[in-house]
Amino acid sequence: MKQMKDLRWRLLLLFVPLAFLVSCDDDDDNSDPNLGRLTAQEFVQRAAVSDMFEIETGNMALQKSTMQEVRDFATEIVADHTASSQELMALAQQKNLQVPTALPQDKQAIIIRLNGKTGVDFDKDFADVQEEAHEDAVELFEQAVEDLEDAELRAFAQKILPTLRMHLEHARELDDMTDAL
């Protein structure tokens, strides 16, 4: 009986400090409100990569695709992303923000993979890639509309967002179409 009582006290002494540790509030009221927010530089970098990737893969589809629907979509994305890229570069230059000149390795790997495919295999992979790329782009631009402090970049993101959503819808339709092949 006494051993059981001693064990309870020891357990209590062991868990009381733990309870205080767990109950500590980690949310500092004076923490940086911008922590985790999208910066202008980060947005420009990611949006420029998105445009470059869409233009490059779109041009590839114009050369390699066997489906008219894929070529039509490729024409659409090359034109729209070329226009948004030019506008983004002008804004970035005006604000002295760095614009990438090459695609990162993960995007290069996708291009190499697509380049190695032909016919229906290319069309299916291209549609998958476009759906994922446009999901990422829509997410980025939605975040930019909410997070960016720079009013001009926020307005740019708001302006481009409907086009990206339309591309995403077309990419999904194309993906469904190519999956059926």
Rank of each mutant, 00 (worst) to 15 (best):
N115P: 02
I111T: 09
T178D: 02
K124T: 09
L103W: 06
D121H: 11
L18E: 09
V78H: 04
P100T: 00
L174R: 04
N96D: 13
Q68T: 13
V44C: 00
L62P: 06
D147V: 03
T82K: 12
T39I: 05
D125W: 08
A83D: 14
A90F: 01
L114H: 07
I112M: 10
V16C: 09
I111K: 11
P162R: 04
R10S: 11
E132V: 11
I111D: 07
R154K: 15
V16S: 09
T101W: 05
T75W: 01
E76D: 13
R71A: 07
I112P: 00
Q93K: 14
A92M: 05
D80K: 12
E169H: 10
I111G: 10
D121E: 15
K5C: 02
I77H: 05
A109H: 06
F53I: 01
T39P: 06
D25E: 11
L161F: 05
V49T: 10
L91R: 06
D80Q: 13
D123W: 08
D51T: 05
N34R: 14
A180E: 14
G119Y: 07
A19H: 04
L103D: 00
D176Y: 08
G116Q: 08
M60Y: 07
V99E: 00
L21S: 10
F141C: 01
A92D: 00
N115E: 14
H170I: 02
L12K: 12
V16F: 10
H81G: 01
L38C: 07
L148W: 02
A127L: 03
V70P: 01
V138M: 00
D72W: 10
D72R: 14
F73L: 07
V44W: 07
M89D: 15
Q93A: 13
L164Y: 09
I110V: 15
E152V: 05
I112A: 15
A79E: 14
E54V: 05
A144T: 00
R71Y: 00
E76N: 13
I55V: 15
M89G: 11
A47P: 02
A19M: 10
N59W: 08
Q93M: 10
L62C: 05
I160P: 02
A92V: 08
P162I: 00
D176P: 03
R37N: 13
K64Q: 13
A83G: 06
Q41C: 05
L35P: 03
I55S: 03
D51P: 03
A151H: 11
A102I: 07
D72Q: 14
Q158S: 14
A61P: 06
L62E: 04
E87S: 12
F20R: 08
L153P: 08
M52Y: 07
N115D: 15
E169R: 12
E142K: 15
I77F: 04
A83E: 15
R8Q: 12
Q98K: 14
Q143R: 15
R71E: 07
A151F: 10
E142L: 10
E173Y: 11
D29R: 12
L168N: 04
D147E: 13
F20G: 12
L12V: 13
D136M: 11
A180C: 04
N34P: 03
D147T: 06
F73I: 00
L114T: 02
F43C: 01
A144D: 03
L11K: 12
F43N: 01
T82M: 07
A92E: 01
R71D: 03
